[in-house]
């Protein structure tokens, strides 16, 4: 059933040209150079240190690594991280 739902959603984004992050509950990540990264639609912090930030997503996780991380803002839906970002990686995405 869940798979069917996913399929319908995927089809909708393609044929109706709806933004994928709204329909499929995906994160929207905005970066400003290597200084700022802005993640919307996250599902909680899993790990936070100076060098890495691990966020839960609807599906899987996102791992951001770098240096001197500071969580400038943290809201239920969005996070703004400041620091030197080296790498953004998705983990466990089916």
């Amino acid at each position: 059933m869940a798979r069917l739902k996913q399929k319908v959603k995927k089809w909708m984004t393609r044929s109706l040209e709806l933004p994928a992050d709204v329909v499929m509950d995906l994160p929207r990540i905005t970066m400003i150079g290597h200084l700022h990264i802005y993640i919307e639609n996250h599902k909680g912090v899993k790990k936070f240190t100076n060098e890495e930030l691990r966020l839960n997503l609807q599906q899987g996780e996102v791992l951001i690594t770098g240096k001197d991380f500071v969580l400038k803002t943290i809201l239920p839906e969005e996070i703004l991280v400041e620091g030197r970002i080296i790498d953004v990686r998705y983990i466990n995405i089916s």
């Binding site: 912090v45 936070f48 100076n50 991380f69 500071v70 969580l71 943290i74 809201l75 239920p76």
Partner: peptide, 19 residues
């Protein structure tokens, strides 16, 4: 981090978080 998540879910405003 669990504290952070708790705050997120209970609308407690945090900022400038450093490890």
């Amino acid at each position: 981090e669990t504290f952070l998540n708790y705050c997120l879910n209970h609308n407690i405003h945090l900022w400038d978080i450093k490890r």
